[in-house]
Structure formats: C-alpha cells, structure tokens
Design a protein around this nucleic acid. Structure first.
Lengths: 168, 168
DNA sequence: ATATAAGTAGCAACTCAGTCTCAATAGAGC
DNA sequence: GCTCTATTGAGACTGAGTTGCTACTTATAT
C-alpha cells in the first residue's frame, strides 16, 4: 500500500557526489575521504535526519576506515547545505536535514505526537507567497512552511486510548 | 508615513497581566514580583524580542528592585508561552518571541539582510493550510510560515552600493 | 614517482542558549 | 503574624555546535 502523496525524485544530470565535487572545486576545497563517506552515507537513504544521528553512526559506532569526527560531521553538513545538496530546518529547536538536490520543493506537516514529518507540495502556496511578497515590495528567495498538528495514525491511537479510558 | 500593512490590536477583555494572573491561579502558581516585572516589561512595547535582550535589560543592567535573574527570565517566558500570552518561533536557530494575546494571527517576511520581521495576514493561507491538512487526514492545530528574502529598504541599499561600485 | 604547499581531520577546549539543583526567600491562606 | 509551599537567584551543568591547533592528506608542480 503506497502513499498516494509520496514525492517523486527529480531527474538530475550529476550524482550528489559529483555535484559536491563541482562545488568543492569551485571553492578551492578538496575531495577528502571523510567528505566522501559522509555524503555517501547521507544520500544512501531518503529520510529526514539530524547531526546527532550521523555522529552516532559515523563517529561513535564506527570502526576505523569510515569514521568521521564530530567537528567534521558538522563542518561537512554546513558545506552540503551551502552547496545546495541538503536543506536544513529547525523543528522544536532542533536542526533537521533533508535532501534538496534532486528532490522537488515541498513543505511539511509536523505531527507533534510522533514527531513525523509528512511532505506535501502546493503550487498555490508558492503563488500566495509571491503575491504577499510583492504586496510588500519584498524579494522572496525561499520560505519555510510547517503545519503542526496530529497525523492520521496518531489520531487513531488517541481515539482508541480514549475509548479504553471511557470503559473504566 | 504610516505602514499601510500594520496590524491592528484586537480588543480583549483582560489586560495581559490579568490574563496571566488567571493562568497562574488556575495552575496553583503565585503572582510574584519577578513575574510581574517581566510581563510588564514585555507588554510595554510591541516588538519581536529574544530572551537575551530581556536578560540584558532585566538581569545585567538593572538596579535592585526590578532585577530578574536569568533562570527566571527563561522560566517566565515559558509560562507566558504556555499561557498563550506570547508566541515563540525559531529563526536562524534563535528563539524569538512576540505578543500573541490581544494580537491577530499573522505570519512573517524575514529579511535576511537586516534581520527584520515584517508581519502580514492572509486568510487564504489559513484556508490553504486546512485544505492540505484535510487531504492528508491531518488535524492541523497551528503553523509557522516564514518567507525569507530581502525587504524594500535593503533592496534599495544594495542597489545604491552596486551603483557606487560600478562608478569605480 | 616525489617534493611541496595548502587545505583538512581530529582532538580537546570552548561558547552559547537554556536548564537544573539547592539553599534562602517570599507569596497565599489561615 | 505564622505556616506551608512555590519561587527566586546563584552557580553548576548540559547539549548542540564551533574553534584553535597540530599532524596529516590532497592536489599540483617537479
């Protein structure tokens, strides 16, 4: 049973690794082992993630060759955001990252119960944003729209719990 | 020359102080001097502010009677958010507060150049939010919409600077 | 291949916002 | 005023993220 709202990846000419190499070269930076490990890791699955998780996986629980230190995880995440490969957002005072390169623009529903992020796309939102911006002579470059609430599953769980309580 | 988009305050039965007292009583909490000082201070002007500013004004540069300690500033801010008097948001990894009680719902344009927040209201946004939410069987309770970009004044400044450079 | 120069990794120390502990104090109700 | 309990303030602490520094890689020239 597939999610009818799941977002499709966008076709891109270069792999994330290649794009990152372009970026590094353009900045006179070097393609190093830790940077390779990190980007490989980050683009091997498509979930939202935070620095802490990466540090756990790459720094704490890692044996020799593919270990990356804490500062380097942070440094490289910043470079990935800077280069447009990742998008960073703050949710509940916590930095969360997601793929940007090769992934369509979208916004999020945030379930305050299970902390899950649900993605959605809306052309109308973009239009609305640009309309409001132009009304204020504001040159919009990006936006962050997060809807807080309770997702379908958590609503069901809560209802079930309530019913159970009612029986007592 | 007044801002044609300035938001109007909403009429409310109780003053912020009175509302806060209601809240405190309902929670078995006490109406103390530091809490009074803080809320008085916070509702005496209508800008966006952060904990740091309050600490500066009330904790560092304050003489005797209306001094409030750093932990108490943080504690009370949380209570003010909890009680619905203030709204908290994260911008650039930094917590920013604004009046909620007696102030209409709105969202923000954030100028990445001068760090200013411009408020705007949009009924359409609310409708759009609820439409998207219901499409996902999501029960929306609130949202945060921040448009990043450059405000009118900063655009002018930048253009001027560019022109100056062009002359060289 | 090899030397060389410059960028980078890792460590540990640091910063900064926010929280916690705890002893002393001050509200609220009697 | 007295008592009980919430609260304050000081300082210690936490956790995310950053920085200074030295040893090490990487890129490039030799």
């Amino acid at each position: 049973m597939s999610d009818p709202f799941a977002l499709e990846a966008v076709d891109v000419a270069l792999s994330p690794m290649e794009r990152f190499e372009e970026y590094l070269k353009s900045k006179g930076k070097r393609i190093t082992q830790p940077r390779r490990i990190l980007i490989e890791h980050v683009f091997s699955h498509h979930e939202h993630f935070d620095a802490d998780g990466l540090i756990d996986e790459l720094s704490h629980h890692s044996k020799g060759a593919d270990r990356v230190s804490r500062p380097t995880v942070y440094r490289t995440l910043n470079e990935l955001v800077e280069s447009g490969l990742l998008r960073k957002m703050e949710i509940g005072g916590r930095a969360v990252y997601e793929h940007d390169y090769g992934y369509p623009d979208h916004d999020h529903l945030y379930c305050t119960q299970c902390q899950n992020l649900i993605e959605f796309q809306s052309a109308e939102l973009r239009e609305l944003r640009d309309k409001v911006a132009s009304m204020h002579n504001f040159r919009a470059t990006s936006h962050r729209f997060i809807v807080n609430g309770v997702c379908e599953q958590c609503q069901k769980k809560t209802r079930r719990k309530k019913r159970r309580v009612d029986l007592i």
